[in-house]
Amino acid sequence: MNRELTPLILRGDELYRRVLSPLLLGGSLRPVRPLGPTLARRIAELADTFTCSDLDLQHRCDEARLRHARTLAPLDTLPPLSSADWMLLAAFNDLLQSVNPRLPSVVAPSRPTRLLNACSLLLASIPPPHDLLAALTRHATFARALEVHRVDTQVRWWTGSAQFHGEPPSKRLLAMPNLRRVQITETWVELETLPLPGFPREHYHEVLAAWLALSPLTDLATAARIEPPFRWHATSLGLIATVPGRRLARRVLGRIGAKGDVALEHATRELEKQNLHIPFQIAARFLDERRALASMSS
């Protein structure tokens, strides 16, 4: 094996096992050390030849991707992760690391901002999906991205309290619970609200929106989210501009509920306000069709 490639393969393998496999199969997601644009691109160049060190895990991940894809289209096989998918995965890792409470330090408080800037640069270099299969493959990989959550634990005892973000509380603080009157409160924090006070919250939401825009089906599937609010992008409009794309989009929206429909209406109205006639017509036609089909099926 080429000596220069060995570290890249190891980092890619680490990224696959610690980030992608939990994203597809569930469980603990442990982001790896921030990668940045250069390293992410170099790892992505190995996409065609990548094989995970745990072949069984890779097989289960492929099955999970196919399982996601088959909920939308009758496919029997999915292509492996492309270079763009690898860069998107690296960007997602860096995005999660940017809200790591242990990232900033006293001497380097601006690390989250620097990491988000690097993440924006990386996202700007990722091409949008070039056809329906690529969009479906990307969605099958990242469909559960917005299901990532962090468990924050608050421990109270008779003389004080302590907060733990995404890590288990110290055993020392849990000792003698009856005597010290220890109370543990767990809070589930969604991906949209991960930044703690003092972190660049708006910047984080901008980068998350840019990340979602690169997977238009995932963007549509999570349109009911609160932050960042759903907006029509060139990728999502390009998707619903074709008949098969509209069909896929309708399937992915499925039972998104009233919140999602309201978000789609708001986003379409934004296009109208900005006098973007053609995008507005594409989005409006899509919503009209969706309403007509909903009335037929109800």
Partner: peptide, 17 residues
Amino acid sequence: IQLQIEDPGLRPLRDVE
């Protein structure tokens, strides 16, 4: 999917250029 936070170590952004 549960996000687990770990200490990124010294110079966590050394790969980010």
